[in-house]
Amino acid sequence: MQLLFINFEESFFILLVAFLIFGPQKMPYIARSLGKNLRYFHNVTQEMQRAIWEVTEKSPYNTVSKEPKTKSNEIDENLS
């Protein structure tokens, strides 16, 4: 199992070092703040993806890319 591109043994070692540095009293606070920050980061990335999707769907380039096809079809119909 990989977590953030590291395997289980590496993540266990990191947790052990953090436990030794910060102690058992601060570990719940650190884990809670890490969870809040990860949730915030996830929400921000979702908002950015949604905004980019809305902009690209309503982009003037979408209509411009369709116009040459319709104009060429009109020209072909007029020539026929």
Rank of each mutant, 00 (worst) to 15 (best):
F19P: 00
I6P: 00
P28L: 03
P60A: 02
L34C: 08
M27F: 06
Y61Q: 08
V17C: 10
G23W: 05
V64A: 14
M27P: 00
I75C: 02
F41A: 15
L79N: 09
K58S: 08
L16K: 15
M27A: 08
E54Q: 13
P28R: 04
S72R: 09
A18M: 13
M27N: 01
A51E: 14
I52K: 04
R39K: 12
L16Q: 15
M1H: 15
R50D: 07
P60Y: 03
I6N: 11
F5C: 06
K58W: 02
A51W: 07
T70Y: 06
W53F: 09
M1V: 12
F22L: 10
A51T: 13
K66V: 03
Y61R: 05
S65G: 06
E77T: 04
I14T: 14
T56R: 09
L4S: 14
K69P: 00
F13S: 13
I52Y: 06
P24G: 09
Q2R: 10
N73F: 02
N73T: 01
S72W: 01
P60Q: 04
E67A: 08
L3H: 10
Y40N: 12
K58V: 00
T70G: 02
V55S: 04
E57Y: 06
K58N: 13
S11N: 14
M48G: 00
R32P: 00
F8P: 00
V44G: 03
Q49N: 10
Q46I: 02
K36R: 13
R32Q: 09
K36V: 03
Y61N: 06
F12Q: 14
A31D: 05
Y40G: 01
L15I: 05
M1I: 10
V55G: 01
K26A: 15
F13E: 14
Q46G: 01
M48A: 08
K66P: 00
N73V: 00
S11Y: 07
N43L: 12
E10W: 00
P68I: 03
R32K: 12
E9F: 10
Q46E: 04
S72Q: 09
N7M: 05
G23V: 01
V55W: 05
S65A: 15
I6H: 14
F5T: 06
I52F: 07
N62E: 05
A31I: 10
N37L: 13
N37F: 13
D76L: 03
H42I: 00
E10T: 11
T70Q: 10
R50E: 09
N62R: 11
E77L: 04
Y61W: 13
Y29W: 13
F41Q: 14
Y40T: 12
L4T: 07
N62D: 03
Q49R: 08
S59V: 02
F12E: 14
N78S: 11
E67G: 02
P60G: 03
L16H: 15
I14W: 11
T63E: 07
Y61L: 09
S65L: 13
F22N: 11
N62G: 06
A18T: 04
T70R: 11
P68S: 03
F41L: 12
R32N: 09
